[in-house]
């Protein structure tokens, strides 16, 4: 049964992630007063890219070719380690949050190495900026993990979610609010959304993630785009289930599984819509203002840790 939940989760993420990206741009477009393409547009693009020719620059080496596969595979692996549709998956007792966060990092590192391997200017530029953000984001991530692990006495994701289901009152604490705020910043930075990175820009001065992909074409490009969509959905799903695990069930029967899928889908949709609404009102931060934002997230995480160690939750 855990295998079935895993398959359901993977299918859910693979098919759903381009839709979420489509939904976000639909919402943004509608608010800007546009007619807008429908939510299926990212899917059309993915399908098209998979049928296109692949061009490899002469200067690139083997890493350039391998990087998109590694990025996609590590993101896919991470999606098999997060409680999105069930609180029990194969090996779920071994999915430590520190470990799973490492899979996101693994993807970023491979993409950066691939970009450096392209032997072009933009590849290096994107890699350098991306690695700066990764480096500065790491403290915020680990601090949020620390803050979350305190209430469950464990840093296992599934244990944290279970603990929240068992003691829902613990969520209503200042510590949770602070760690939620810290995690929101982490999620935004990690998924490359505004105000940290603008996924729609191609200007030298501003682009981070896009700069690394400029030399890619065909299915490797599709894999990269798809992987960042998956990453977005994973992070949104993770944050919603960490703080609001209602609707997650043990893998016992297919009906419950279906209900879980629907509820998680709804949660992710809701969060994505909120994120899109917020993005309309935002401009991208200057690259060198981003560390301030990440530093803010770190401090929030630190406060959350101190609060959860020394302040009791409001509701027992």
């Amino acid at each position: 049964m855990t295998i079935i939940s895993l398959c359901a989760q993977i299918v859910f993420i693979l098919t759903g992630s381009p839709l979420v990206v489509g939904l976000m741009s639909w919402i943004k477009n509608r608010i800007e007063g546009r007619r807008s393409a429908d939510v299926l547009q990212p899917w059309r693009e993915t399908r098209k890219l998979f049928s296109k020719q692949v061009l490899y620059p002469q200067t690139a080496g083997g890493f350039f070719r391998f990087a998109p596969l590694a990025l996609f595979a590590s993101t896919l692996s991470a999606s098999a380690m997060i409680p999105l549709v069930s609180i029990e998956l194969p090996f779920s007792s071994t999915f430590d949050l520190f470990w799973v966060v490492g899979f996101f990092l693994l993807g970023s590192v491979f993409l950066a190495l691939g970009a450096l391997d392209s032997g072009t200017v933009f590849g290096g530029m994107g890699a350098s900026r991306e690695m700066m953000i990764v480096a500065l984001l790491e403290p915020s991530i680990l601090m949020s993990v620390y803050a979350l692990s305190i209430r469950a006495h464990s840093s296992n994701i599934f244990a944290i979610v279970r603990a929240t289901i068992l003691h829902p009152g613990q969520i209503a604490s200042p510590a949770s609010a602070l760690s939620f705020a810290a995690l929101v910043i982490v999620v935004i930075a990690e998924s490359g959304r505004l105000p940290v990175d603008n996924p729609n820009t191609h200007l030298e001065l501003t682009m981070i993630h896009e700069a690394m992909t400029l030399e890619y074409s065909g299915y490797p490009l599709a894999l990269i785009k798809w992987a960042s969509a998956i990453r977005l959905v994973l992070l949104l799903g993770l944050i919603s289930n960490l703080f609001l695990p209602e609707g997650l069930f043990d893998s016992t029967n297919l009906v419950l599984l279906g209900v879980s899928v629907l509820i998680t889908g709804a949660k992710v949709t809701l969060l994505a819509s909120i994120l899109a609404l917020a993005e309309v009102h935002m401009a991208k931060l200057r690259l060198f203002r981003v560390p301030e934002l990440l530093g803010g997230s770190f401090v929030l995480g630190l406060l959350s840790v101190t609060a959860s160690l020394y302040l009791p939750p409001i509701l027992k």
Binding site: T46, R47, S51, K52, Q53, P57, Q58, T59
Partner: peptide
């Protein structure tokens, strides 16, 4: 995945880097 999602794509090609 590429073979599931996409149709067959033309032979890949090595080109000058985009300058």
């Amino acid at each position: 995945i590429p073979t599931i999602v996409g149709k067959s794509h033309p032979e890949s090609r090595t080109v000058e880097p985009w300058a």
